[in-house]
C-alpha cells in the first residue's frame, strides 16, 4: 500500500463495525433475519404444545402420523412452490399439473397398456415439460409469473379433463393393473407411528433441496436471482437459465407429488386437490419464505405445512368447527407476512 501506513490506523477504521448497542427488539429482528426458520419453528412447537394441552389425543402416535400423512402431498407441492417463490415468482399451476400428471400416469398404465414404470417416467418428463413451458414464458416472453401460471393453470386443467374424460380410475383397478402407482401410499411402522412412503418422499425432497440451495453454486444463484435479478445479471449470472431451470425442477417435484398423490387418495381423480394450489402457497408463506424472493430457508415451508396440519388436527380434536380452521389459517398467513416485512427492514 502506498501511503496508507502514514494514516495510522486507517486500515482498521474503514468500514469497521462499532459495537452499536441495540434494543432487545432490534436484537430479535437481527436474529430472525439471520435465522429465517426460527419463526415457523417456534410457531410449530408452541401450537403443538397448546393443542397437546387442550386436545387429549393430540400427541398420540396415531394422530401425529395422521398429520404427517395429511401434510405429505401439499408439503411436496410446497417444496416446488418454494423454489419458484424464492426467485420472486409464483406458480399457480402446481396443483393442476399434479392432477394432470397423475391422470396421465394412470391412463397410460390402465387404459393404454403401457408398462407402469414407463408410464411413471412419462409423468416425470411431463413435469419437466410443463415446468419448461412456464419458465420459457416467464423468461423469453417476459410475462409476469403470476399471469403466466394463471394461464397455464387453466390450460393444464383443461388438458386434465381432456386426458381423463372426467372419469376416475378406481382403487381396485389400480390394485389389479398398476399397484406401483400406489407405492407412496404404502404404510410402514416405526416406533408405533405409522408412516407412508409419501411422507418419506416429502422429507427427502426437502432435504435434497436444502442441500442444493445451501451448498451448490446453483442454489446461491437461485437466491441471487430472486433477490435482485438485474444485479445478478450484472454480476455475471445467466439469470434466464437459472429461472428456466428452477421452473423445470419445480415441475419435476410436482410430478413426484403426482405419483405420491395417487397413493394418498387411492384412486386417480381428475377433480381432486382443488385447494392444493393455495395450500402450497400458504405453507410457503407461513414457512417464512418472502414473496418478494431471495429470502427464507427451504426447510421453512415444510414446517409451514406441518403448522397448518397441526392447527387443523388440533382444532378438530378439540371439537372446533371446520370454519375456524380456515379462520386460524387466514390469520397465520397475515401474521407470517407481517413478520416477514418487519424482518426485511433490518439495516445497518
Amino acid at each position: 500500500m502506498t501511503d496508507l501506513s502514514k494514516e495510522e490506523g486507517a486500515g482498521e477504521q474503514f468500514a469497521q463495525f462499532e459495537p452499536v448497542s441495540r434494543g432487545p427488539l432490534a436484537v430479535l429482528q437481527r436474529f430472525l433475519h439471520a435465522n429465517p426458520t426460527m419463526v415457523p419453528f417456534i410457531v410449530l412447537v408452541l401450537s403443538a404444545a397448546v393443542f397437546g394441552l387442550i386436545a387429549p389425543n393430540f400427541f398420540s402416535a396415531f394422530n401425529l402420523s395422521l398429520i404427517m400423512q395429511q401434510v405429505a402431498i401439499v408439503g411436496t407441492l410446497a417444496a416446488a412452490q418454494s423454489l419458484v417463490i424464492l426467485t420472486a415468482g409464483i406458480d399457480l399451476s402446481v396443483a393442476a399439473v399434479m392432477v394432470m400428471i397423475s391422470v396421465i400416469m394412470g391412463r397410460l398404465s390402465v387404459d393404454f397398456g403401457v408398462p407402469v414404470p414407463l408410464a411413471i417416467l412419462v409423468g416425470m418428463v411431463c413435469g419437466l415439460i410443463t415446468g419448461a413451458i412456464n419458465g420459457l414464458l416467464v423468461t423469453l416472453v417476459r410475462l409476469p409469473p403470476f399471469i403466466t401460471t394463471l394461464g397455464t393453470w387453466n390450460v393444464f386443467l383443461a388438458l386434465n379433463y381432456y386426458f381423463s374424460g372426467r372419469e376416475t380410475i378406481r382403487s381396485q383397478t389400480l390394485d389389479a393393473e398398476a399397484p406401483l402407482l400406489k407405492l407412496f401410499g404404502e404404510r410402514f411402522e416405526i416406533g408405533g407411528a405409522v408412516l407412508t412412503w409419501g411422507v418419506v418422499l416429502m422429507i427427502v425432497v426437502f432435504l435434497v433441496l436444502w442441500y442444493v440451495l445451501q451448498y451448490t453454486a446453483w442454489g446461491r444463484r437461485v437466491y441471487a436471482v430472486g433477490d435482485d435479478k438485474e444485479a445478478a445479471e450484472l454480476a455475471g449470472i445467466r439469470t434466464d437459465r437459472v429461472l428456466v431451470s428452477v421452473y423445470m425442477v419445480a415441475g419435476f417435484i410436482v410430478a413426484l407429488a403426482a405419483w405420491s398423490s395417487i397413493g394418498r387418495v387411492g384412486s386417480v381423480s381428475p377433480t381432486s386437490f382443488f385447494e392444493a394450489n393455495l395450500q402450497s402457497i400458504t405453507a410457503v408463506v407461513i414457512g417464512g419464505i418472502s414473496l418478494f424472493g431471495g429470502r427464507g430457508s427451504i426447510l421453512g415451508p415444510m414446517l409451514g405445512a406441518l403448522i397448518v396440519g397441526v392447527f387443523n388436527s388440533g382444532l378438530r380434536l378439540a371439537g372446533v368447527e371446520v370454519l375456524w380452521q380456515l379462520f386460524a389459517t387466514g390469520w397465520l398467513i397475515i401474521l407470517a407476512v407481517a413478520i416477514d416485512q418487519w424482518i426485511r427492514k433490518v439495516s445497518a
Binding site: 446461491r220 444485479a231 445478478a232 450484472l234 454480476a235
Partner: peptide, 9 residues
Amino acid sequence: QTLALSPAL
C-alpha cells in the same frame, strides 16, 4: 453505479 450486489446474500 448500482453496485450489482445481492442484498440478502
